[in-house]
Design a protein around this nucleic acid. Structure first.
Lengths: 337, 337
DNA sequence: CTGAAAGCGCTTACAG
DNA sequence: CTGAAAGCGCTTACAG
């Protein structure tokens, strides 16, 4: 087993390369970082040395010297069943493109658990913190604001962003849903709202528009935790016990919508005629489900790109103001409503 | 806006704390890292100084000094719809518990894309690399082996692990499925196998046991990419065109099983009487689906804990041998088969 | 229990 | 285009 480098010897570093190539550390550094051009012949010698030694630059040391870690912390409420997964993936890929690497932190739904994660990120001197969940705690917002690092809030567009926000207006999606339901002639909606999430903003936006355009009351079922099929059962219990059966259910996620659809099928209700269903997120199942799910699509790819773009620009020394970047959304009409 | 620290001034560092507390840097370092006890009175003064300055230790610098970054790279094939999500979440949480932070890398399904991600991890001098997908490329395995860092392969139990592997035998799950189907009296299985995944090992294990216990041929449909509902349609096309209709479909994931179930419902086939369905992964939908899905459960939590445990032990200087840690699996019998 | 000093592996003005 | 030297912010033998 003598293949590869001996585990006992220390890995090569910049000055090993410099010695082998017969140049100074500074020159090797310049060659590797491509910041300042190096004479062609010199570059060749350095390249040879790098390959011979299998040199891998220590970015931790580099980061210490430049105060740019090229590390970005991305804090998400949860991974499993999350509607954020696509966005997270897009962010990670976009960051990579710009030479950054993402540290993943999972906060859970309790705001209090956010603080140590932020500390951990700050201790690593991340170049930015990306938040995908809603940060409602004022103390945490203040702390983030004074931390002096780039903070990107995604998905939502808070009125008073910590730094930069990339997302869309949840109230607007509610509005769009109201208009859509009206156009289709639905009159008795039931919405499922997960506590402590942005679904609350969506519902508010919906209600405002719904009433303004002549709609009446709108039943609301509040549920806890991530939207799951089990909530779908609760929805059905409610529907059964309602004096007036709703004709459309507005779900907080496509996963939940899927659950409702399955319950409806099991109960022998025809969708959308007897009961229509609206999802949120445009997960891949939304298109594949039978009936396919009418939903709101969000451009996670774009969110990732915009976020990486901002971080990279700041890193390059450009002055990027606090701002809201609205990536919009799209209501996709399918079979379920 | 004068709250918090002035953005222009540099953040406080160890020697600022030392100066304010009237001790040496070494003492502050010892106090913060808790490696060597410090006199109580001294500790109090240091604590005061830390709070007053809002000092956050620079772990990048600390990592450089100790050659322990406390960074772990976790490389996953994909996030969206992945059966690994739960395990990833468990790993991230377990690592945190031990003071590590996870860098997330998404490799896609192409092995060739793995190399730059490994380079990026090595350049950050990660204390470990955790792989959740299968690494079949010999060159990459060799490179990882000679990198001198802890490498943990999860989910599978390769015959010749790079370093440590924490997972279960996929062949064994196939075997368990064969025994189960036989017990239930199924005779004509169809399996869906995603190319380039460990589903291939499961199928091999299944076939071996199936034939050994007197079973005949087993139809196989190979699909590409992550298991999706759309594959479910292909399954149905195949079922319809088969001379002899299969009586049970073995799916590579619960998501796919769900798709097949929905197609079956739409086609008016009763499950499991006319067509039984087996999933894999025990996602939350498996229990919630109607009919609920018979599947294989994997203990992602345990995988995360074992992995973090190993990394932490190595970090503490303990000698941990190359090894295979079998966390087992469980066949959960529900309604779909 | 505490301190002075060397070292971790880079980068970057400054000077040539 | 290149080099010598100081500095990034920690830790840890070594000595007391």
């Amino acid at each position: 087993m003598t293949e590869g480098r001996d585990r006992a010897t220390r890995p090569p570093r910049l000055d090993d390369v410099a010695r082998v190539a017969g140049v100074s550390k500074a020159t090797v550094s310049r060659y590797v970082s491509k910041t300042i051009p190096v004479a062609q012949a010199t570059g060749l010698r350095i390249q040879k040395a790098i390959e011979r030694l299998e040199y891998v630059p220590n970015l931790l040391a580099g980061g210490l010297a430049t105060s740019r870690s090229r590390l970005v912390s991305i804090i998400v409420p949860l991974l499993a069943q999350s509607s954020f997964n696509e966005t997270i993936e897009a962010i990670v890929r976009a960051l990579r493109q710009h030479g950054y690497v993402a540290m993943l932190e999972i906060s859970g739904t309790d705001q209090a658990d956010l603080e140590p994660l932020i500390e951990a990120a700050l201790a690593r001197r991340v170049d930015a913190i990306i938040l995908t969940g809603m940060v409602s705690d004022a103390g945490i917002r203040r702390k983030l604001r004074s931390a002096g690092t780039t903070v990107i809030e995604t998905w939502g567009l808070p009125k008073d962003p910590i730094d930069v926000a990339v997302g869309f207006s949840h109230a607007e999606t509610g509005r769009a849903i109201a208009d859509f339901l009206r156009r289709r002639g639905y009159s008795n909606p039931l919405s499922i709202t997960a506590r402590g999430t942005r679904a609350i903003e969506r519902r508010a936006g919906f209600l405002r528009q719904w009433k303004q355009t002549g709609g009446g009351e709108c039943a609301d079922l509040e549920v806890d935790g991530p939207p799951r099929f089990s909530h779908a059962r609760a929805v059905f219990r409610l529907i059964r016990s309602s004096a007036q059966r709703p004709d459309v259910v507005i779900c907080g996620s496509d996963g939940l919508a899927q659950g409702v659809l399955i319950e409806a099928l099991a109960a022998g209700l025809s969708v959308p005629d007897e009961l229509a269903v609206l999802g949120f997120g445009n997960f891949s199942i939304a298109a594949d489900m039978r009936p396919s799910i009418t939903t709101i699509a969000v451009d996670g790819e774009r969110i990732g790109q915009e976020a990486a773009q901002i971080i990279s620009a700041r890193g390059a020394g450009e002055l990027v103001e606090h701002q809201l970047i609205d990536v919009g959304f799209q209501l996709i009409e399918r079979e379920s409503a």
